[in-house]
Design a protein around this nucleic acid. Structure first.
Length: 334
DNA sequence: AATGGCGTCAACCGCAAGGAA
DNA sequence: ATTCCTTGCGGTTGACGCCAT
């Protein structure tokens, strides 16, 4: 119980991870797979030596083990380095899911994250705390002040969930229709199984200081986001510290061969949660149809009130309130 | 230009659950 | 049955960047 023993040792580093540490960790996981985190800090010395040997580390880099506790290694992997993680702004649809599930599940971020496999629970938690919670409170206040005489038995949160649920949704036994995830957001875990984007992104940082011809050989791994912008994220921004002169292509390719690693990682991380949620789920015909629509890239249903509101923060609460479902203001007391 | 306030998010902490020995 | 270890989870913190003054 309690903290892993390594965290009590003197010399354990804290604070932001460096690019060197990320590379050591990723290389280690490529070799040994994710898990057995306790062994990571002590066993990464060999990885460090290898990276030094193939000139991926500058000559000045000391050959050391990761000076991180096992827990820190695990978190760094699951929240940042793991393949398949989507970073950047949350889409209105993702926001809608989060608000909807938060209303249902409370602050069970891991459960909520299981409906958004590309997002980590930490990401969702942060996003809720920094963006959505405030928006929601603002909205709640506006509603509360407008429905003094309405049904007081249900909270505004519940009322919103009710309103939000008026559109077709997956029905999951044990969950009411209003509390089910929206089918159009569901993606098969297989979508992420072979996603090595994060790792490639990380490793690409190694190439920054290579001659242009060498960089061109790996140009295809440049990340292009949904808006078509090329991007380099996270630790990669620190990549300019690398002074490696050249890397034999074979060495590089071997380090880039993360297919096995990512498959293992995703078999473990994505199949369990998402499948367990949906296991035993019987889709109503309409919902099954909706799910097929996702696969076909079909037109999405109209945005709910809440989604509209999220899309336009300045749209004015009064307008939004006018669009609330009728039952949101109905009161059995009247 | 300096600085103070605020927002964001990566990382840490403490606890609990589950499994192996 | 108990202990120990690993992993997962949610709350919190602190560093950093942006912006207004």
């Amino acid at each position: 119980m309690g903290r892993p023993p390594c965290c009590d040792k003197v010399g354990i580093k804290k604070g932001p991870w460096t690019a060197e540490e990320d590379i050591i960790l990723v290389s280690y996981i490529q070799e040994h797979g994710a898990g057995n985190w306790r062994a990571v800090p002590t066993n990464t010395g060999e990885v460090s030596k290898l990276l030094y040997f193939v000139c991926l580390f500058p000559r000045s880099t000391p050959m050391i083990c990761l000076l991180r506790c096992s827990k820190s290694c695990r978190l760094r992997w699951t929240n940042y380095l793991r393949p398949g993680i989507k970073r950047g702004n949350f889409t209105p649809h993702e926001q809608g899911i989060i608000i909807h599930l938060q209303a249902l599940l409370g602050n069970r971020w891991a459960a909520i994250a299981s409906y958004l496999p590309q997002r980590t629970d930490n990401d969702i938690k942060n996003y809720w705390n920094t963006h959505l919670k405030k928006k929601f409170k603002k909205y709640q206040t506006a509603i509360d002040s407008s429905m003094i005489s309405s049904d007081s038995g249900a909270s505004c949160h519940e009322q919103m969930s009710k309103g939000y649920s008026m559109e077709g949704r997956i029905r999951i036994p044990g969950l009411t229709a209003s509390h089910s995830p929206t089918s159009r957001f569901y993606q098969s875990p297989s979508t992420y199984t072979s996603n090595t984007e994060n790792i490639s992104r990380l490793l690409e940082g190694w190439m920054w200081s290579l001659p242009k011809s060498a960089q061109d050989m790996h140009q295809q791994s440049t990340i292009i986001d949904s808006d078509g912008n090329e991007s380099l994220q996270g630790s990669q921004a620190k990549g300019d510290r690398w002074s490696c002169a050249a890397i034999a292509k074979d060495d590089h390719d071997s380090l880039l061969s993360f297919e096995n690693l990512s498959s293992i990682a995703w078999e473990k991380s994505s199949s369990s949660s998402l499948h367990s949620v949906l296991q035993g789920t019987q889709l109503a015909p309409a919902d099954a149809e909706a799910k097929r629509g996702v696969a076909d890239g079909a037109q999405q249903p109209p945005l709910s009130l809440l989604e509209k509101w999220l899309l336009d923060d300045t749209s004015g609460l009064v307008d939004g309130l006018m669009e609330l479902p009728a039952d949101c203001f109905s009161s059995p007391m009247l």
